[in-house]
Design a protein around this nucleic acid. Structure first.
Length: 555
RNA sequence: GCGCCUGUAGCUCAGUGGACAGAGCAUCGGUCUUCGGAACCGAGAGUCGGGGGUUCGAAUCCCUCCAGGCGUACCA
């Protein structure tokens, strides 16, 4: 049995009041109105609704009057101490502080599940993220992709979606051919042959290491087979090794995938051809200039796109259509793709292709994130994928640790082209918000341990004793966690977790300053405060957990 | 040219059309220093890129201009 969040409860009250006011002819009949509740400025109230302001015009009444009618029609609620109409027409809700204090017990009762909500209703949802080409180690940009995708997946799980995490492997096509040719050149070089990396090849040092590993495994065998066969073998083995390394990089960042789907598999299964056939049956395909095109200019896409090249090879785009079709075929009713902004031009194409297959494009949400710059010593680090001159996930995690890596990569809105400051991230001081937040959690642990040492194990407490402003302010934010989870799940804004955690830590430190928890002179109050500290510890741990960060008891 | 993202305090960034624009860092000045000082309090600091418009109300929506980033392949 889960209690409703305060915000959801107030929303319900307003809906009831609206219906009641209309039934009593205090308001004219209205078409269905969506009721929104937001956070009020702290000095005004806890929650507020602009319902009356929005209704004013439709009901032909001044906003304040509408607000008063609604306030009068509101049912009684144990959550609330007072509801008032405030100029120019807000409805302000003040929480009942006794109710609020009792929520400490609610948090503790829910334990590690505190923060969950049910906007998902068990919907089967897939998050596809990272999906970087297996032609090199993961860069910090992919790191942002992983952290956004995985954090979002964690939050969606908390919001009761049945979440599946997937990685799409682009293991065929021109990039992989170049990868294999580069590998061959490196392999030959290691055998003293004067070979050259192709001009468009992957010049990074990791290709030498990869070739070295293959040399160790198979000696010079690949020098004595036809080049086609050598390339085939190098493609296969190089891909496998690269994927192992990518899997490790993901694990370093605390992300794991449920499934890896390969483009080659889709092709082998005939799914790409089947998708093209379906499109053709639906009259969406045209042959022109020797190629096969998807006609999508009437589907919110500004131009047609090639499905099969004039050389008979299907494009990446054709495979991607089959892939998204396959996602929906497996029963995921909601799809999220996390893409770097350099792929944004691809969005209308994929959406149009879903429509062309007869699917609802709304089922697919594409979360775009802007590029990541890296600062070291205050200077921007130049990156080039072609020369292999990149900052990798592995370097960053080695340098600053997984917690700081995840924090900084998640703490910015995906729309912001962020800078990752390596020096700040490994700074172990008050300049670093990672430590600020984790320190607050460690402090809760330390207080609870000390209480046990002093023979004050937390037990039954009269929570109504929690009346100090610092206690109640902290609690007000704590009870917003389920509301935050709901917002992040619906709006795909994982960075808000970071801001929440920071604010919660600030309030906890303020509480710590103002309220002595362990006080033998006042055992009853101490017990109540210990409960509050225990509840706060749970909220910190949950919030950090949703961000994929650890919640250490000691630092 | 066209499309997407961005432009908010010295810096890095929050800010679901609402109530006087916020935080962290930096700067300056303080606190207490017996539950962890990796803490707390205070101060200064903003024409929300410019200009129009919509609205009872705009950082937020629309138009336009300026600046930066990213796209605009029979690459992936």
């Amino acid at each position: 049995m889960k209690t409703e969040s305060a915000r959801a409860h107030i929303r319900g009250l307003l809906e009831q009041a609206l219906a009641a006011a209309q039934a009593q002819n205090k308001l004219p009949p209205l078409a269905s109105t969506d009721v929104t509740v937001e956070y009020a400025p702290p000095e005004k109230a806890d929650y507020a609704s602009n319902l009356a302001l929005r209704l004013s015009r439709a009901v032909r009444m001044p906003p304040m009057q509408v607000a008063e009618v609604i306030v009068a029609a509101l049912p009684e609620s144990p959550y609330l101490a007072e509801v008032t109409a405030a100029p120019p027409g807000f409805i302000n809700f003040h929480l009942d502080e006794t109710w609020l204090a009792r929520q400490v017990g609610e948090v503790i009762a829910q334990g590690a599940a505190y923060g969950n909500c049910d906007v998902g209703g068990s919907t089967a949802l897939q998050v596809e993220f990272c999906s970087a080409n297996p032609t090199g180690p993961l860069t910090i940009g992919s790191g942002r992709n992983i952290v956004l995708g995985d954090t979002l997946a964690r939050v969606l799980e908390a919001a009761n979606y049945a979440v599946q995490r997937e990685y799409y492997v682009n293991d065929v096509g021109g990039q992989m051919d170049i990868f294999a040719r580069t590998l061959l050149a490196r392999y030959q070089q290691l055998h003293g042959i004067d070979a050259h990396v192709p001009p468009d090849g992957y010049a990074g040092e990791y290709m030498v290491e990869l070739a070295g590993q293959i040399k160790q495994e198979s000696g010079d065998a690949l020098l004595h087979v036809p080049e086609d066969e050598a390339l085939q073998k190098l493609h296969e083995r190089g891909l496998a090794l690269m994927l192992d390394s990518i899997r490790e990089d993901c694990a370093l960042l605390g992300a794991q995938f449920d499934e890896w789907v390969a483009q080659s598999w889709l092709e082998d299964e005939g799914r790409v051809q089947a998708a093209i056939d379906t499109l053709r049956e639906r009259g969406r395909v045209a042959e022109r200039e020797g190629a096969t095109w998807l006609v999508s200019s009437d589907l919110e896409e500004d131009k047609d796109n090639v499905l099969v090249r004039s050389n008979g090879e299907p494009t990446y785009f054709a495979a991607d259509i089959a892939y998204h079709d396959y996602k929906l075929e497996r029963g995921y009713t909601s799809l999220i793709d996390v893409w770097g902004a350099d792929h944004h031009g691809h969005v209308p194409r994929v959406k149009a292709s879903l429509a062309a297959l007869g699917h609802d494009p709304e089922q697919l949400t594409i979360l775009l994130y802007q590029l990541v710059r890296v600062l070291r010593g205050g200077e921007e680090v130049r990156m080039s994928k072609r020369t292999g001159d990149v900052v990798t996930v592995r370097e960053v995690v080695d340098e600053v640790g997984v917690d700081a890596s995840r924090y900084f990569l998640v703490a910015r809105s995906p729309d912001t082209a962020m800078s990752f400051d390596l020096d700040l991230a490994q700074e172990q001081s008050d300049e670093n918000p990672v430590y600020y937040i984790q320190y607050a959690h460690a402090r809760t642990a330390s207080i609870l341990e000390r209480a046990v040492r002093e023979g004050m194990a937390p037990g039954d407490a009269d929570l109504a004793l929690l009346q100090h402003p610092a206690e109640l302010t902290l609690l007000r934010l704590m009870i917003r966690l389920p509301e935050l989870v709901e917002d992040v799940a619906l709006q795909h804004t994982p960075h808000r977790l970071a801001f929440y955690a920071q604010e919660l830590a600030a309030l906890f430190h303020a509480f710590y300053r103002d309220c002595r928890v362990i006080d033998p002179e006042n055992a009853a109050l101490s017990q109540a405060r210990l409960q509050l500290v225990q509840a706060a510890k749970l909220v910190f741990a949950r919030c950090l957990g949703l961000m994929g960060m650890s919640a250490p008891d000691r630092m």
